[in-house]
C-alpha cells in the first residue's frame, strides 16, 4: 500500500475532489438550462458541446488522475480516440448523401 502511494502519489486533498464535484454540478445545471430556456441553433449546440467537453475534461483530468499521469500513458489513451473524428466526418458525409437521396426518391 505504501509502495503504491509513494510511486504514484495520487493523494490529493479531499477539497480538490469536492471542488470538482461542485463544478460538475454547476456545469450539468448549465447544460440543463440550455434545454430549459429553449436556446436554439448555433448558440445551443455551442453551449452543449462546450459544457460537455468541460465536464469530460474535469472527469478525465482530476477524477481519473490523467493530469498527474506520465505522458506515455496520457498519449496512449487520449490520442487514439481522435480517430473517431475521422469516422464522424465520413459518416456525416454519408448521412448527408443518404438524406439527399431520400429527398429525391422517397418523398
Amino acid at each position: 500500500m505504501t509502495t503504491a502511494a509513494t510511486t504514484h502519489g495520487q493523494t490529493h486533498p479531499i477539497s480538490l475532489y469536492l471542488k470538482i464535484w461542485g463544478l460538475l454540478f454547476v456545469l450539468s445545471t448549465l447544460s440543463y438550462l440550455v434545454d430549459y430556456f429553449h436556446f436554439h441553433g448555433l448558440l445551443r449546440w455551442g453551449l452543449i458541446v462546450t459544457f460537455m467537453l468541460l465536464k469530460a475534461g474535469l472527469i478525465v483530468a482530476v477524477f481519473m488522475h490523467m493530469a498527474w499521469e506520465r505522458l506515455a500513458l496520457v498519449y496512449a489513451i487520449l490520442v487514439p480516440p481522435l480517430a473517431l473524428m475521422v469516422l464522424v466526418g465520413l459518416m456525416w458525409a454519408e448521412a448527408d448523401y443518404t438524406f439527399l437521396t431520400r429527398l429525391f426518391f422517397f418523398r
Binding site: A76, I77, P80, P81, L84, L87, A95, F99, L103
Partner: peptide, 26 residues
C-alpha cells in the same frame, strides 16, 4: 485504461451510428 480505450470506441461507434441515422432521416 486500455479496456476503457476499447470501450470508448464502442460507445463512439454507437454515437456515430446514432448521428448517421438521425442526420439521414427525412
Amino acid at each position: 485504461w486500455i479496456f476503457l480505450l476499447s470501450d470508448t470506441f464502442i460507445f463512439g461507434s454507437f454515437l456515430t451510428g446514432y448521428m448517421t441515422v438521425r442526420a439521414s432521416t427525412t
